[in-house]
Design a protein around this nucleic acid. Sequence first.
DNA 1: ATAAAATTTAATCATATGATTAAATTATTT
DNA 2: AAATAATTTAATCATATGATTAAATTTTAT
Lengths: 204, 204
Amino acid sequence: MSKKKPDADNSTEEKIKAAANVVFIKKGFAGTRTRDIAEEAGINLALLNYYFRSKEKLFDIVMMENIQQFLAGMRGVLNDETLSLTAKITAIAENYTNMLKIQPNMPLFILGEIKANPEKLVTNMKVKEIMISSHFYQQLKAALNDKVNPLHFLINIISLAVFPFVASPMLKVIGELKDADFDKMVEERKKMIPVWVDAMLKTH
Amino acid sequence: MSKKKPDADNSTEEKIKAAANVVFIKKGFAGTRTRDIAEEAGINLALLNYYFRSKEKLFDIVMMENIQQFLAGMRGVLNDETLSLTAKITAIAENYTNMLKIQPNMPLFILGEIKANPEKLVTNMKVKEIMISSHFYQQLKAALNDKVNPLHFLINIISLAVFPFVASPMLKVIGELKDADFDKMVEERKKMIPVWVDAMLKTH
DNA sequence: ATAAAATTTAATCATATGATTAAATTATTT
DNA sequence: AAATAATTTAATCATATGATTAAATTTTAT
């Protein structure tokens, strides 16, 4: 039962998960071959099944850890009672942008897989509670005087921050953007999104 | 060379394309089995290859027609010189929303497949020309006095209109939305998006 | 050092899936 | 109606891919 290398992290298992993450995010579940994951991890195919039993089990684990990590990052900001609404929006936009600059393929991957299998999200994560019961959501509600469903603004903020990454291949064509130009735009948006959202809020 | 039924539209071919559209949009390229398309079309598998030679060829055709149809719908609005900028934004938001209510899975499908194969878009479509050289884009540029890249607002408008559909499975969980509630929100957004975008424009 | 346990591998299996073929059926032309 | 062309099908092929197995190797415990 004891580990081969109790001092190091369970390196093989982690290596497979990291490799799976890379390949799954790049190709989606259906497009991924377990052999690709094995190669990316520098191990044999059988070893993958030895550790994770099946492609789907491995996928579920990697997927869940991704979402968990994502929510963890956001949770702190959403419930920091010292931050004003505008300050929170700024922090959210920065959080998303910084994360997505590192993992630009994540949103499309997550959205695609949730669509393919919505019940997994419902069952395993408590996204709803984290969002709706957050201090941020209450501030939003207050700012809107019950005139508009706050969900609209949750959508708006996430849209403005995330959509550019989801649509980046198309934007690069339409706008003839190099990677550096895209980065520059995304940085500009970090600053402008809070201003824009403030202006939108004031229309109600 | 003559057709079996010259009066009717080439019904079998069209039936296969329609079926392929349904299945591809639902499952993506990798997740789609040609047998599923055949079944959906009510024909035999071999017939699919008889007409379209291969899965990929069929996919390319269906994909291109989708994008073409989409751009065609937008093109008229973008270049209608009688419409003010705000009127165009209203029309764009309505156009997108109405289209996406019928084909809600389209954006995720298109974005996913473009990511998997960006060069196809570049080669076959002239998205860039249609967008950047449009009357709409010039109006946007004028309204911004060269202070901000107009591309930001192209992104903003599309984000606000399209993202809710891309993220709908997640939104339905977060906001506990039934299909009817989601429809209602989307209808509300049709009216609010132009107001919001106006407010955003005025911040520059 | 030896035994036991854990890890890794090569080889193989079973199935799914894109594609082809040759024959049968249906429509069109003469 | 007969001949020709177009359409449709069942059967089959070839390959890709997820998974398993049994043996080899490496690590850990005694």
